[in-house]
């Protein structure tokens, strides 16, 4: 097996709500190599954002990581002290949030965002040097360096997201997690931002985790995919394998329900029902009430994640020994 950069084992995150305990991320395991791109796909409430946040230990309370390991270059991030973890954030793993409007400080100039970030991690660097570095990076992300003196409100949504990308890579991290980086943007700007992410990833040899609800984007732009459903990872594989042979009925259903403009004639098929309430999960497999291939066993027992072909994991009784 090739050496993995990031290995996540049995990661479990819980939220304590008034009505009870919610497992937003339940026993998720995967690993990623250097410069790979992973697409994390799921609907709202599937736990994809919580999964992203838990990798950098930023799950907001009342959320808590209750179990698991996040190994980065041999170090378990979940065992680090908070001050050690702060050194990892930004420098090893950085995060791009969905909404660039609320992620930038409205009363600070663009340049100040960079100076603050650089000087927090590298206090010896002078303001001037930090600003020079920022200007160079702005050019990389396609923004005129003069914009360094602008305030966030003077920039468009797409430009703000470019600034967020520049901020995410300024300390040269090995992993960038982007949580729905283009959801608030129009389709042309979206394509340009995704192109930019790819360019930056190639230039700085980074690993990218792209969290998105848009399966088309993941299929088009990623090497691997991880499909989340109601807190479970239901399928995880290389994109080429998912494209050729999607295995989980949920993944199959998603692929059949998204319009594809390349196809001349297409009949979309809906997945019946709606995602379950996490406080009131069905017994057995979480997807069975919506699954057309549901069997007796699916209503009783929770399926385990199994490897059906090299690197292709699926959580479904239709595969492996359970199929009788």
């Amino acid at each position: 097996m090739q050496k993995q950069l990031l290995t996540v084992e049995n990661l479990t995150v819980e939220y304590w709500a008034r009505r009870g305990k919610v497992r937003a991320v339940d026993n998720v395991s995967f690993s990623l190599g250097k410069t790979e791109t992973l697409g994390v796909v799921g609907e709202s409430g599937s736990g994809k954002s919580t999964l992203g946040l838990s990798l950098i230990r930023l799950v907001p309370p009342p959320g808590r990581i209750v179990n698991g390991h996040v190994w980065l270059e041999g170090i378990d991030l979940l065992k680090l002290r908070e001050d050690e973890m702060r050194k990892v954030r930004g420098r090893k793993i950085s995060f791009i949030f969905q909404d660039p409007m609320t992620s930038l400080n409205p009363v600070k100039k663009i340049g100040e965002h960079f100076v603050e970030l650089i000087r927090t991690h590298e206090p010896k660097i002078s303001d001037e040097e930090a600003l020079q570095r920022a200007e160079k990076l702005l050019e990389d992300v396609g923004i005129q360096p003069e914009r360094i003196n602008d305030y966030p409100h003077q920039l468009s949504g797409g430009m703000r997201q470019r600034i967020m990308i520049a901020l995410a890579i300024v300390l040269n991290p090995c992993i960038v997690i982007a949580d729905e980086p283009t959801t608030a943007l129009d389709v042309i700007v979206q394509a340009k931002i995704l192109d930019l992410l790819k360019d930056v990833q190639n230039k700085y040899a980074m690993t990218l985790i792209l969290i998105t609800h848009d399966l088309s984007i993941a299929m088009e732009r990623c090497d691997k995919i991880l499909v989340m459903y109601a807190g479970h990872m239901v399928e995880h594989a290389y994109i080429k394998d998912i494209y050729r042979n999607p295995q989980h009925p949920y993944t199959q259903g998603l692929l059949r329900s998204i319009p594809n403009i390349e196809l001349a004639e297409q009949k979309l098929e809906a997945i019946p029902g709606s995602p379950p309430d996490l406080l009131n999960l069905p017994k057995g497999c979480r997807f069975w009430p919506r699954c057309s291939s549901a069997m007796e066993i699916c209503r009783k027992t929770e399926p385990k994640l199994i490897e059906t072909e090299p690197g292709h994991f699926v959580r479904c009784f239709l595969y492996g020994d359970a199929k009788k």
């Binding site: 299929m219 088009e220 494209y243 403009i261």
Partner: peptide, 12 residues
């Protein structure tokens, strides 16, 4: 606009 639409096809 049309060229910017994502398509669920890794070979594209």
């Amino acid at each position: 606009l049309l060229s910017a639409i994502p398509v669920p096809n890794p070979q594209r």
